[in-house]
């Protein structure tokens, strides 16, 4: 439903998300070493790689939850978190950054639903207070999204009354309620009991099939193969290999990728 048939804009070839030469370190530890990433409108990109490879940090730079030391992030042609002034990059005020964050949905490993609000309140809080949408309209939109993730009957429940899988599906609906241009998923199934992973992945596949632009950090190789347009393999803070699932997962060129994938059952 979020896929309004927007006519192709003039710069249709410009990718929606552009990361250029991203460097980031925590003290002595350098976690990102000059990463480039492009995500086109409607594309589903999964980022895989071992723990500590920098994939989650990279994802979090896209909506400026993580600052960078060097490089540029832009979404929809606008720099995120920084602006050029006299040939140098400067941090923008919080207000500017939140304006761009409205257009970037994020789903967390730990769901992070607001436990003191009902499912409905979780879904209408940001549309009402950030986008200033009238309550009735926000509620209608929330109901549509909950129906889509199959949880309309839980609209008045509190998060603690839901299973982990249900909470994560509500979290996805909450992010979608802002009608973002791109959705970021940070290991969305890692905190779930094994039998609950399927329902969340099904919801995500449904989004992917609808043409939602998605960047997904995941350990679910099967999901990456099935739903992704492109798979990016990261290790040691760099992109080792990137391509279609058939290229990267089924026929990896790099030994580092092969070694990582050999740990997963095929």
């Amino acid at each position: 439903m979020s896929t309004e048939t927007v006519p192709a804009s003039t710069d249709v070839e410009e990718p929606l998300v552009v990361l250029r030469d991203i460097w980031k370190s925590y003290g002595e530890l350098t976690v990102l070493r000059g990463v480039d990433l492009d995500v086109r409108k409607g594309e589903v990109v999964t980022i895989i790689g071992p723990s500590g490879s920098g994939k989650t940090t990279l994802l979090r730079t896209i909506n400026h939850m993580e600052t960078v030391d060097r490089g540029t992030v832009s979404v929809g042609g606008r720099l995120v978190g920084y602006e050029w002034r006299r040939g140098r990059l400067h941090s923008t005020p919080d207000r500017e950054t939140s304006r761009i964050r409205r257009d970037i949905g994020m789903v967390f490993q730990q769901f992070n639903l607001f436990p003191h609000m009902t499912v409905l309140e979780n879904l209408i809080e940001a549309p009402r207070s950030v986008r200033r949408i009238p309550r009735a309209e926000a509620v209608a939109r929330a109901e549509g999204l909950l129906a889509r993730v199959g949880l309309l009957d839980k609209i008045d429940a509190y998060p603690r009354q839901l299973s982990g899988g249900q909470q994560q599906r509500v979290a996805i609906a909450r992010a979608l309620a802002m009608r973002p241009k791109v959705m970021l998923f940070d290991e969305p199934t890692s905190a779930l009991d094994p039998e609950l992973v399927g329902e969340v992945l099904a919801t995500m596949k449904d989004l992917a099939a609808d043409g939602t632009t998605m960047v997904v950090v995941t350990h679910e190789i099967a999901f990456a193969r099935e739903a992704a347009d492109r798979v990016v393999f990261m290790a040691g803070g760099v992109v080792v290999e990137s391509g279609t699932p058939a290229e990267v997962i089924d026929d990896p060129r790099e030994p580092r990728t092969r070694e990582f994938l050999s740990r997963f059952l095929r």
Binding site: M65, S98, I104, M106, N112, F114, E125, A126, S129, V130
Partner: peptide, 16 residues
């Protein structure tokens, strides 16, 4: 309050 709560709120575009 877990820091994830603040993160989720900020990520939705809510002001500080």
């Amino acid at each position: 309050v877990p820091p994830g709560q603040t993160e989720a709120s900020i990520a939705l575009g809510l002001s500080r």
